[in-house]
Write a protein that binds this DNA or RNA. Structure first.
Lengths: 405, 405
DNA sequence: CAAATTCGTCAGCGTCGTTGACAAATACAT
DNA sequence: ATGTATTTGTCAACGACGCTGACGAATTTG
C-alpha cells in the first residue's frame, strides 16, 4: 500500500482520516476518545479509522492513559518507521547525509569530505554513502520515499541543473536531480543549502513558532534564507535571499562587482583576511587565525572584524527594512561566531531605528541537514496523508469544529 | 441566511458545496454537467447542490450552452449581488471609496478631499460618504458584509491603531477599526495602502498570475508591498516593505535619518525639489514643475530627476537581491511617471547583474482602492464559502480528481 | 464493596454520493 | 423533413459513512 487510500475510499473518509492523522501528529500519544473530542468526530468513527490506520501500519498503540478517572484508554501514535526519508547537504568541502523516519527522528548520520572531482563522481560517491547509511539505519534503500539534496547556488527546476555554485566543481553541468533519482530510485528534491538551513531553524531551531524570520549564512560567501508567512520564499527564479548582490560595501555601479557580488566581496572570508593584511597584518592568515588574533587582543584583527560586522549590520538593516523579520538568525562558519555577533549587535541599533533581534543558529553546520530532513518529512506527510506541514493542526480543528454547530 | 451552512449540513456536503462554488467561481458561466466533470462529482450530486445554492441565492441561471452536440445545458454563475463589500483608501490629501459585489464588480465609486481635521472627524466624514455611496450603488448599508480600509503607516492589529502615519492627522491616536466598525456595522479590515495597491495589481493588474513581485510606491514618501508565494508579506510587525528605512542614499549611521528614513530623505518628493534648488534651480517649485521643466529640456531638472532615478534603481537592486521578484511594479504620483521609469530602467542593469523587469502600475492612484475591493471579495468568499482567494480552483480540482481513482 | 466515571463496541438510522436507466432536447447526416 | 447520435437532466436503488444511544468492561474514589 503506497498511499493512504484504498481504491474505494470516499472523499469523506479521506478528509476524516487526514483529520485524525493531523491530530495524532500534533498531539503525539493520544487516546481515541481524545481524538474524537479534538476533531469533533464520534468515538465510533475514530475507532474505525484508527483501526484501519493501524492495519495499514501508519499508527501503533503506544501505551495507556493514567491519572484520569475511569477506565484507562489505549493511546496511539504515529508509527514513525512506516516511512523513511533522506537528506544530503553538499558543501564545498564536506557532505553531510542523514536518514530520518516519518517523524524526523534521525536514524543514521555521517559527515565526510566532498569528492573533489565533483560532477558525476560526486553522484557516485553520494550513492555509496547513502547505501552505507541505509544499512546503518536498518532501512532498505528501496524503502526510502524521498531524498532532499541541499546545494549551494540556485537550483533550476526546469532543467534540474544548479546555477552559480562556484564551490562545488562540476555541479552546474549535470542534471543533478535526474542522476540522483536514478541512483537512489526515489524522488529527489533539490534546494539551496541556506534555504534548507532556514527551514531547519523553522522546524526545530531558533525559528520555531515564528511566522517571519531570516537566516543569514556567513562563510566563504554570504546568503540568506527567508521565511515569510511560515513559508520559504524562493522568489521568481529561486534566487531570493542571494544577498551577495546587495549594493552595499562597494560602488554598486562598478561592473567588477557583478561576478562576485557587491557585498560578498566586502564581507566574505576573503575580505576579512584581505582587510587584516591591508591594515598591516600578516597576509598568509586564515579567518580562523584572525579570530584567534582578536582573542589575544590584536587591534588589527579587531579592526578587520569590526569592519565586517559593520557591513553585516547594514545588510541586516536592509533585510529588516524589506522583510520586517521577527528575528534574524546568523549561521555559517563565520556568522555564528560570538565575537562577530556581539559586534553586529553593537552596530545594528546605530544604523536602523527598528533593529531586528539577532539569534545564533541552533544547529550550526548541521542546520542544512536538519532542514533537509524537515523537508523530507513534509514531503512524506503530504504524499501519504495530504498534510501540508505548514498547515498545522489548529486549522483542522477549526474546520471540523464548525461541522458540528 | 448568513453563511453557507444550514444547521444540519454534514461536513461532506460542505466540502462538495465548496468545490462546486470554487469551480463556478473559476469557470464563470458553466453547466452542471461540466461542473460534475471538473469536480469529479456525479451529475446527480451537482444538480442537488446547485439547486440548493440557487434556492439560497448564491447561484443563478445565466443562459444555455450552444455550439455543442446534443441537448443544450443551462449554465449557472455566481449571483454577484448576493453580497457586497466596501473599500476605502485614505490618503493624505484624498480619500477614495468604492462598493463592490461578490465578484468585485464596482457598483459605485467616489474620490474626495480628505477631511483635514483628521481623527474622529475623518471617521464621521467617511461614514457619510459611505452612506451616500451605498445609496448610489443600491445597497443597504446594513447589507455590507465587510469594509476594507487602506491607510498609510503600519496598522497594529492588537490595538487597532495605525502607527507612523505622518500624512493623515490624528490617525495614530484612535482605534480606527473599532470606530469605523461601530459606524458601519460590519467587520473592518485595516491594511497599509501600499500593501493594498500590491494586492490590487495581483488581482487584476500587472501582478496577475505572478507568484512573486513587489509594488514600489513613490510619492511623498517611498513604500513597498511584497507578494511572495502569491501571498502578501506583512512581516512580524506589519512593517515589511517599509523601505524608507533602507540604508541607501545617506550615511546609515547618521542618527538624523532615523525619523524620516534614510532613503526617503533622498528620493521623496521633497528631495527632488530640494535637489532641483540645490543645483541652482528656483526653490519654490513643486515636483510637477520639475517634471515640466524636464519636458522642456531643463538640464537642472534632468539632473535632479536622474539622481532620484539612480537611487531608486539601487533600491530596486536591493529589493531584487533580497526577494528575486518576477517584476517590480512602480506606482505612486512620482513612481509612475514615464520619464522617471525610463531613467530607472537605464540605471538598473548597471548596478545589478540580475535586474528585475520594471512595470508601471496598471491602476495608478486607484490601485489601493482596487486592492481593497479584492480583499473585500476574498473576505466574503472565505466567510461565505470557506474559499481562500489565494487557493485557486486548480488545487481543488486535483483534490477531487484523486478521490475518483 | 458500591458508586461514579470513562473507555470501547454494537446495532440501528439518516445523510450523502454514486450508478444505471430513461425521457427530453438538440445537432448532424441523409 | 426525418432519423440517428449525442448530450442533458431526473428518478430510483444501493452502498459507504458517520452519528446516536445503549451497554458491558475497566478503573478510580469514597
Amino acid at each position: 500500500m503506497s498511499t493512504l487510500e484504498s481504491q474505494t475510499t470516499s472523499i469523506a473518509r479521506k478528509v476524516t482520516t487526514q483529520a485524525v492523522m493531523r491530530t495524532v501528529l500534533a498531539e503525539g500519544a493520544i487516546s481515541r476518545t481524545d481524538v474524537a473530542r479534538l476533531t469533533g468526530l464520534s468515538k465510533q468513527t475514530v475507532s474505525e479509522i484508527v483501526r484501519s490506520l493501524e492495519d495499514d501500519g501508519w499508527l501503533k498503540p503506544s501505551g495507556r492513559t493514567d491519572g484520569r478517572l475511569g477506565r484507562q484508554a489505549i493511546t496511539y501514535e504515529i508509527n514513525a518507521d512506516a516511512a523513511h526519508g533522506l537528506a544530503i547537504d553538499v558543501g564545498g568541502t564536506k557532505v553531510a547525509a542523514a536518514i530520518g523516519d516519518l517523524l524526523g527522528n534521525i536514524k543514521a548520520e555521517v559527515m565526510l569530505p566532498t569528492d573533489p572531482r565533483g560532477g558525476t563522481h560526486l553522484v557516485d560517491h553520494l550513492g555509496r554513502v547513502v547505501e552505507q547509511l541505509a544499512a546503518e539505519a536498518g532501512v532498505a534503500l528501496a524503502d526510502l520515499r524521498v531524498a532532499v539534496l541541499g546545494t549551494p547556488g540556485v537550483f533550476d527546476p526546469e532543467t534540474g541543473h544548479v546555477r552559480i555554485a562556484p564551490n562545488v566543481p562540476g555541479l552546474e553541468n549535470i542534471d543533478l536531480r535526474q542522476l540522483m533519482g536514478d541512483r537512489l530510485g526515489c524522488p529527489v528534491i533539490v534546494e539551496n543549502d541556506v534555504n534548507l538551513a532556514a527551514l531547519g531553524e523553522q522546524w526545530r531551531g531558533q525559528g520555531a513558532e515564528l511566522n517571519d524570520f531570516a537566516f543569514v549564512a556567513l562563510g566563504t560567501g554570504i546568503g540568506m534564507g527567508i521565511i515569510a508567512n511560515r513559508r520559504l520564499v524562493r522568489g521568481a527564479r529561486g534566487a531570493a535571499g542571494e544577498i551577495s548582490y546587495l549594493p552595499l560595501g562597494a560602488d554598486p555601479f562598478d561592473p567588477r562587482n557583478f561576478t562576485v557580488g557587491t557585498l560578498e566581496a566586502a564581507v566574505g572570508a576573503a575580505a576579512i583576511t584581505r582587510r587584516f593584511a591591508g591594515y598591516g597584518g600578516p597576509s598568509d592568515r586564515t579567518v580562523k587565525d584572525v579570530f584567534a588574533a582578536l582573542a589575544e587582543g590584536d587591534g588589527l584583527a579587531a579592526a578587520a572584524i569590526e569592519e565586517t560586522a559593520r557591513l553585516v549590520a547594514v545588510t541586516i538593516a536592509s533585510v529588516g527594512a524589506v522583510l520586517d523579520p521577527e528575528v534574524v538568525i546568523l549561521g555559517g562558519s563565520i556568522g555564528a561566531r560570538d565575537e562577530l555577533v556581539a559586534a553586529i549587535r553593537r552596530f545594528l541599533p546605530r544604523c536602523t531605528p527598528t533593529p531586528p533581534p539577532i539569534a545564533i543558529s541552533r544547529f550550526g553546520n548541521r542546520a542544512g541537514l536538519i532542514g533537509g530532513i524537515s523537508v523530507a518529512v513534509a514531503h512524506m506527510l503530504d504524499e501519504l496523508f495530504g498534510i501540508p506541514l505548514d498547515q498545522a493542526a489548529p486549522s483542522v480543528g477549526r474546520l471540523l469544529a464548525v461541522s458540528q454547530g
